[in-house]
Computed example of a mutant assay.
Amino acid sequence: MIDPHDLEHCRSAIRHGSLSFHAASRLMPTRLRDPALALYAFCRLADDAVDLHDHKRAAVRRLRERLDAAYRGVPRDAPADRAFAAVVEDYDMPRALPEALLDGLAWDAERRRYATLSDLRAYSARVAGAVGAMMCVLMGMRDAHALARACDLGVAMQLTNIARDVGEDARARRLYLPTDWMEAARLDAESFFAEPLPLDPVREMTRRLLHEADRLYARAEAGIAALPMAVRPGIFAARHIYAGIGLAVRRNGYDSVSWRGRTSRRQKAGCLGLSGLRALASAGMPRSAVLYAPPLDETAFLVEAAARPGPARHAWGEGRAGSLVSVFAQLEARDRDRRALARDAAGAS
C-alpha cells in the first residue's frame, strides 16, 4: 500500500510537472489513479534527473541504483521512491518496463540521434511506450493485444511531444527529427541549431511526425475500447489531450519552431467531456479488428515482458484465424491512414 503522505507528494509533483496527465487522471477511478500517480511521479523524477542536470550519465547511473533499491524492497528515503516501490510490490511490475524507460533516458544522456523513423519509434517505445505498458499492468490488463495498443498510445504521445518541441530542442542543440529526413531535405543539423527557422522542409517533417502519431492514436483506440469501462474515460482523455497538442501545431501551419503548441484549460475540459462520451459510446460496440494488429516491431519486447505466460502472448501470429484477423486489422488501419491523408490534404488547400 502507498503511504498517504507519499501519495500526496506524488500528486503535487504531477499537478505541477505534467498538466496533461493530471487532467486525464481526474477521470480515472481511485484504485487506478493513485498507483498511476505514483508511477508517473517516479517517471517524472527520472526524466528531470537527467534533463535538468549537467552530468547526465552520472544521473542515469544513480537512477539505475534507485531502481535496483526499489526492486529490492529498500527504496531511497524519498516519497516518489517509496511510492514506486509499493507499486512494484503490489502489482508485480516487470522490471524490464522501468528498465526500458531508463535505457531511453540514457540515450538522451548520450544525445543520441535517430537515423530513421523506426529508430525514433524505438526511442519513443522506451521513454513512453514502456509507461503505457506499465499502466496496463496497473489495470491488470496483461493480454498481449491490449499491451500492444497501450504501447501504440505511448509512442503516439511521444511523437506528438517531439513534433511540438522541434524549436525548443534545436535551441538546446538536440535533434529528434530522423536524420535521413534531414539529409533528404538537405538540412544540416548544426546550421539548424545556429538559426532555427520554421522552414518549409522542417514543417513537412513535423507534419510527417504528427501523421505517424495520428496513425498510432487510431490503433490505440481499439485497445482503449477493450479496457474495463471504469478506466476508459481517463485513457481516452489522455489520448485526446495529447492529440490536441498535435492539432494546435497543425493549425499553426506545422510551425513548432517559433511557437510551442499547447492546449488551454478550456480545451482540456472539453477533452474530458468528450472522453466521457466516447467511453459511453464504446459500451456494447463490437471490437475493432485493429485490436489484434501485431505490435510495432519497436515495442514487441515490451509486450513480451509484460504479457502473462500462455497462448495469448503470441495470438497475433498463430494459425489461419490469426492471419485472417491480422489482414483485416491491416486493411482497417490502412483505411484510417487514407482518411488522415485526405484530411491533411484538405487542410493544406
Results as ranks from 00 to 15, higher is better:
127 V>I: 14
234 G>V: 12
160 T>W: 04
192 F>K: 02
81 D>E: 12
346 A>P: 02
182 M>K: 14
119 D>N: 14
39 L>I: 07
203 R>D: 03
231 V>Y: 14
187 L>Y: 04
285 M>D: 05
308 R>A: 15
235 I>W: 06
58 A>V: 06
234 G>W: 08
10 C>F: 12
343 R>P: 03
146 A>T: 03
188 D>Q: 14
164 R>N: 11
50 V>Y: 06
136 C>Y: 00
222 A>T: 07
8 E>A: 11
98 P>D: 06
170 A>P: 04
302 L>E: 02
320 R>E: 01
146 A>W: 00
45 L>Y: 12
134 M>K: 02
152 D>Y: 01
340 A>H: 13
343 R>C: 04
341 L>S: 12
322 G>L: 08
347 G>A: 06
27 L>Y: 02
27 L>W: 05
325 V>D: 09
287 R>H: 12
293 A>G: 07
286 P>G: 10
197 L>V: 09
176 Y>W: 06
7 L>V: 08
331 L>G: 10
153 L>H: 06
25 S>E: 09
212 E>Y: 06
242 Y>A: 14
139 M>I: 02
103 D>V: 10
241 I>A: 05
295 P>D: 07
172 A>W: 01
25 S>D: 09
112 R>M: 00
157 M>K: 11
76 R>Q: 05
147 L>C: 01
279 A>V: 05
281 A>L: 11
42 F>Q: 07
270 G>W: 02
191 S>Q: 13
129 G>P: 10
168 E>W: 05
311 P>W: 14
224 I>G: 12
206 T>W: 00
55 H>D: 15
21 F>G: 07
51 D>H: 05
179 T>D: 09
171 R>H: 15
234 G>I: 09
52 L>Q: 13
176 Y>S: 03
51 D>A: 07
312 A>H: 12
205 M>L: 08
128 A>P: 09
194 A>H: 03
286 P>A: 11
